[in-house]
Design a protein around this nucleic acid. Structure first.
Length: 273
DNA sequence: CTTCGTTCCTGGAAGC
DNA sequence: TGCTTCCAGGAACGAA
């Protein structure tokens, strides 16, 4: 599942192949993926225009189109953007085809088809989730001083709290479990119950876990691939995610699997208090 | 206002 | 072996 490190890796690997190239044509094979404008408008407005920059905000990819438009893409669970030679065989689950100049084709593929794409010009459309993102891990705005008062007001489980994109932009289920494991906090604790020291530790763990995910080019647990179709390496270093019943890397006791806020959650009952 | 449950979707795994 | 059922989860949405 693409979370911030995976989306960042997609951005990095995609950028050199598509930046500065013109979009020759767009073929939308599953119109409901286009949230704004209509699929027809999306395709016709992009044709003939140039990708000037490939950015990212939280889990959103932001492709700058000329100087006044942005194509905003959310990969959700199984979405992928892959740039490859136009004469290469098309990838599986291909849903949108962007033919670019210089013999490059960019594909949007998606198994479960939850992905979303927008084309906004001069901010003519308000993307709620995009506009309300909180600070990102590793950014100057993400500090214990920022997090402490928010947590103090929240009665939610700390796991649900850190998954909230308006609180922290970019954490998903894998990294949320990893952050709580590293900071030794039980995911079922309420956010408000965390001490000032624990908030500091959580903040630090979020930065450490995300930095490690980026360094390892993302976590490929199942379907995730970067912009060149390659897997990440971070799955080799996970403390808890996907390790239910296996020994805790800290104390050796079997890890517990549970549901927290409707999400599969793995943690160590002994180490995470 | 906050919080929680439901919904969308498909492939793979588990269960019988 | 072959069928059915369940599960994975990001975020929008409606309900409490």
């Amino acid at each position: 599942m693409p979370e911030m490190p995976e989306v960042e890796q997609v951005r990095k690997t995609l950028a050199p192949h598509i930046t500065g190239k013109k979009i020759v044509s767009v073929e939308v094979r599953l119109p409901r993926l286009i949230k704004y404008p209509s699929a027809e408008e999306f395709a016709s407005r992009l044709a003939g225009r140039t990708i000037t920059e490939v950015g990212r905000k939280g889990k959103y990819l932001v492709l700058h189109i000329d100087s006044n438009s942005k194509m905003i893409v959310h990969l959700r669970m199984t979405g992928a953007l892959i740039a490859q030679a136009s004469n290469k065989e098309e990838p599986h689950y291909a849903k949108i085809k962007f033919v670019l100049t210089d013999g490059v084709t960019m594909w949007f593929t998606d198994i479960r088809t939850f992905g979303t794409l927008y084309l906004v010009t001069d901010n003519d459309y308000y993307i709620e989730g995009y506009e309300t993102l909180g600070p990102e891990p590793l950014s100057s705005g993400f500090t214990a001083d920022y997090l402490r008062p928010l947590a103090a007001r929240s009665r939610r489980a700390v796991k649900s709290f850190i998954l909230d994109q308006t609180v922290i932009a970019g954490l998903g289920n894998i990294y949320a479990d990893e952050c709580l494991a590293l900071s030794k906090i039980n995911p079922m604790r309420t956010a408000a119950s965390l001490s000032a020291v624990e908030i500091e530790e959580l903040c630090c763990a979020v930065n450490t876990v995300i930095a490690q995910g980026i360094k390892n080019r993302g976590t490929t647990f199942r379907d995730y691939k970067d912009g060149e179709g390659n897997s990440g390496e971070n799955q080799k270093y996970l403390l808890v995610y996907g390790r239910g019943g296996k020994p805790c890397k800290c104390c050796g006791r079997p890890l517990t699997s549970a549901k927290v806020g409707g999400r599969g959650t793995t943690y160590c009952e002994f180490c995470q208090k």
